[in-house]
Structures are given as C-alpha cells and as structure tokens.
Simulated scan of single mutants.
Amino acid sequence: MDVVRQLLVVLHIVGIGALLGGFLTQMKGMKTGDVRITPAVTHGALTMFVTGLALVAVRKSSALDLPVDNAKIGTKMAVLVVILLLAWANRGKDKVDTRVFGAIGLLTIANIAIAVMWT
C-alpha cells in the first residue's frame, strides 16, 4: 500500500507541475490581456483533485493507518475547488480576464504554500 501512496504523491506533484506550468507559460500575456486557460491548467487541477482524494483514502485505509490533518486537507481542497471552478468556467474563452487568471496563479501558489508550510 505504501507503493500506491508514493505513486499517488508523484502524480499529485505532476498535477501541480502542469497547473503551475500552464499558468507560468501564460504570464507574459497578462500585460496585454491576452491570456487563456490552457489544457495543462485544467488537467493539472483535475489530476491534483483526484490524486488528493486518493491520497486521503489511502492514508485513512486500515493498511497504513496514517494520520490525516483534516483542517489542512479541507483548506487545500477548498482552494483547489475554487481553482477548478475558475479554470473550468473560463477554459473555452479566447481571452480570460487577467484578474481571474491572476487569481488562479495566486491560489495555486497558496495551495503549494499550505502543503509545505502547514505543519
């Protein structure tokens, strides 16, 4: 079961890489207002969502019985749901409001900070 947890962590990191990378590649367009939601952003956020849920399930399983910080996981999940909603609602637009796009980036960084700093 520990191998499954480790694979889920790897996939979770791949998801955050796609989400953050999709944001960073579009940052140049924020000056001109020419930004859009790339598939990397939506797919990365969805990957994080699914693997995050699976990680909690694996940690709570009787085989590992590892503790779960419900407040931290709930906060991270809430932030990720907002990212998903913003990305999903704007994914088909040719141009996305820079405030919405900036919010996705800031929330992504916040989610990383929560994961690393919340002990």
Rank of each mutant, 00 (worst) to 15 (best):
I13D: 08
T108Y: 03
A45Q: 00
H12D: 03
K76I: 10
P67S: 11
I16W: 06
N111M: 01
T25E: 12
T119P: 13
G44S: 03
D69H: 10
G22M: 06
H43I: 14
G44C: 07
V4M: 11
I73D: 07
L86C: 06
V4C: 00
N90W: 04
I104Y: 07
L80K: 02
K60G: 09
S61R: 02
L55S: 03
L85W: 11
L7Y: 09
V3M: 11
D65K: 15
T25C: 07
V9D: 00
L86V: 07
I73C: 05
L84P: 06
R91V: 12
I37C: 03
G102W: 03
A57P: 05
S61F: 08
D65Y: 10
A110E: 08
F23A: 01
L55F: 10
T47V: 12
S62R: 14
M30K: 03
L24S: 09
G33A: 01
K95T: 15
W88E: 10
T51W: 01
Q6K: 14
V10M: 09
N111Y: 01
R59V: 08
G22A: 04
L84K: 06
L107H: 07
D69A: 12
A78H: 10
F49W: 12
G17A: 08
A54R: 06
T51E: 04
L46P: 00
V4Y: 01
F49T: 13
I73L: 08
M1H: 12
G92S: 15
G44E: 06
M30Q: 04
T25N: 04
I104R: 08
L7C: 00
R91K: 15
M117T: 11
K60D: 09
V68N: 04
